[in-house]
Amino acid sequence: MLVTQHPVFRRFWYPVMPIADLTDGPKPFTLLGEPLVLWLTEEGKPAALRDRCCHRSAKLSMGIVQNGCVRCPYHGWAYNESGSCTKVPQLDSGAAIPKTYQVEAFQCAERYGYVWVCLADDPLLPLPEIPEADAPGNRLIPQFYEPWQCSGLRVMENSFDNAHFSIVHAESFGVTEQPKPVKSELVPLELGLKAYATVPVVNPPLQQQLLNIPDSLTVREVESTWYVPFSRTLKITYPNGLLHLIFTAATPVGDRTSQIVQFCIRNDSEADAKAADIIAFDRQVVKEDKVVLESTDYDTPVDVSCEQHMPSDQPGIVMRRQLAALIKAHGPVQEEGRILTEV
Rank of each mutant, 00 (worst) to 15 (best):
V3E: 05
P15C: 13
V16F: 01
I19D: 05
D21T: 11
G25Y: 04
P28C: 15
E34L: 08
L60T: 09
V70R: 02
E81L: 12
K87S: 11
S93N: 12
K99M: 12
K99R: 10
Q102T: 03
Q102A: 06
V103F: 04
V103K: 03
W116S: 00
W116R: 01
P128W: 11
A135V: 13
P136L: 12
I141Y: 13
E146V: 01
Q149K: 12
S151T: 04
I167R: 09
E177F: 02
V182K: 00
K183D: 12
K183R: 09
K194L: 15
A195G: 12
T198P: 02
Q208N: 08
L217T: 06
V219P: 01
S224L: 04
K235A: 14
K235M: 13
I236M: 11
G241H: 11
L242A: 11
L242H: 11
A250Q: 04
P252E: 13
Q259G: 02
V261S: 07
C264F: 04
I265R: 13
D282K: 07
V285Q: 02
V292N: 04
S295L: 08
T296H: 06
D303N: 14
V304W: 00
S305L: 12
H309R: 05
I317K: 00
R320C: 00
R321I: 03
L323Q: 07
A324I: 10
I327S: 04
H330L: 03
Q334I: 15
Q334A: 13
E335M: 14
G337R: 08
G337A: 12
R338L: 15
